[in-house]
Design a binder for these strands. Sequence first.
DNA 1: TTTTGAGTTGTTCGA
DNA 2: GTCGAACAACTCAAA
Length: 440
Amino acid sequence: MTTALLWFRRDLRLADHPALLAARDAADEVVPVFVLDDVLLKSASPVRVGFLVQALTDLRSRTDGALRIVQGAPADVIPDLVQRSGASSVHISSDYGPYGSRRDAAVKAALGKVPLVATGSPYGVSPGTLLKDDGTPYRVYTPFLKAWRARGVHSPALTPRSVTWSDGGLRTDALPAAPEPVIEATEAAALARWTQFRDTDLESYHEIRDLPGVDRTSRLSPYLKWGLLHPRTLHADLGSSAGAEVYGKELVWRDFYADVLHHQPQTAREDLNPLPLEYDEPGALFEAWKQGRTGYPIVDAGMRQLLAQGWVHNRVRMIVASFLTKDLHVWWPHGGRHFMQHLLDADLASNQHGWQWTAGTGTDASPYFRVFNPVTQGRKFDPSGDYIRRWVPELRELSEKHIHEPWTCERPPADYPARVVDHAAERQESLDRYQRARGK
DNA sequence: TTTTGAGTTGTTCGA
DNA sequence: GTCGAACAACTCAAA
């Protein structure tokens, strides 16, 4: 009897899972394991831990209770489990993040003669695959997309009819206590969410995706982050509408940012294209932003949604990010860290590079003049004010006319904060700082 | 090596 | 109210 270990990380599913197929083909029985890594857990908010716990509980029942959940450092835990179970190989999906790739290198070294076999990755096209003709990586999205399409995404992997799961005689630790997740964290729920989105909203995605009050985006990002779904599954099932075209491109952004971060891991903490901009230290204004008390309704709605749900509509993410960087002049990593802490879908590559896009120091052409006006954005993308009413109860009674600018009311709601800064003045300040940075 | 065209998501102002 | 132009200069990708 031969045994293979299948070490789950960001691939918490059984369908379309190449590493699972590799493990099954490598041995008679498969021992599924998950390592509760302190390094990753300590930075996760309770809502995010809740999502992970439910996903693991589901995976455990679907592996006939075999899934072993073990606390500790992977470089200690995995070799120990291999020894105790007598496994002859360990199977993983590649992780291309800065921490994940270092961790896997350490585990590989610690395993010695037992191979750590990487099959597949969480991306449609794995980081490092696409290079320009001169052999260097892409730094601009559109050419990357072109190359991505020319290569084409693989078809989904078959789901194995049966796998002989085994617990390998190993112990399992208790899952951490965590609240019920706000969205159901099971593979079945992920697939159901996809088919529902595909059948009802995908076709018009390009028209309604920017409207946070309508809120008909796919909401698949937490599933993609943890790998309850693989983007390959979605690409294969998109069909050919205008909405599907735009949605597919959004999925490729995820691959692009992972590729950029893979080649330049330092951009998890630093600007890809540094500019000598003057920044303000985060203080009381930063706190107001985090609490959703800036006095700008759409900004506050977004920041409150983040705290309540661990999820924010994409359009609103850009608005609040622009506000922090361009109106409050705070360096993006401060905001990035807050997002990473609270977002259910917290993906290092997409998050850090999304922020850098807003800050004008990332892969974008960084047009200095792109400063979002929170009032204009609110009127344009939440014209009725419904999104604001949902998240800012103090403003519920305000009309469409006033809800984006409560300070224009005859008697502004007393319990809603006054504007912490004047947007027009801070916009000019941002442009001035940009000008000075260019001059240096 | 040089050249050319293009670069996710905006705002304001004035005609 | 609508619409086009201006807001800079630079880097990237590919021919």
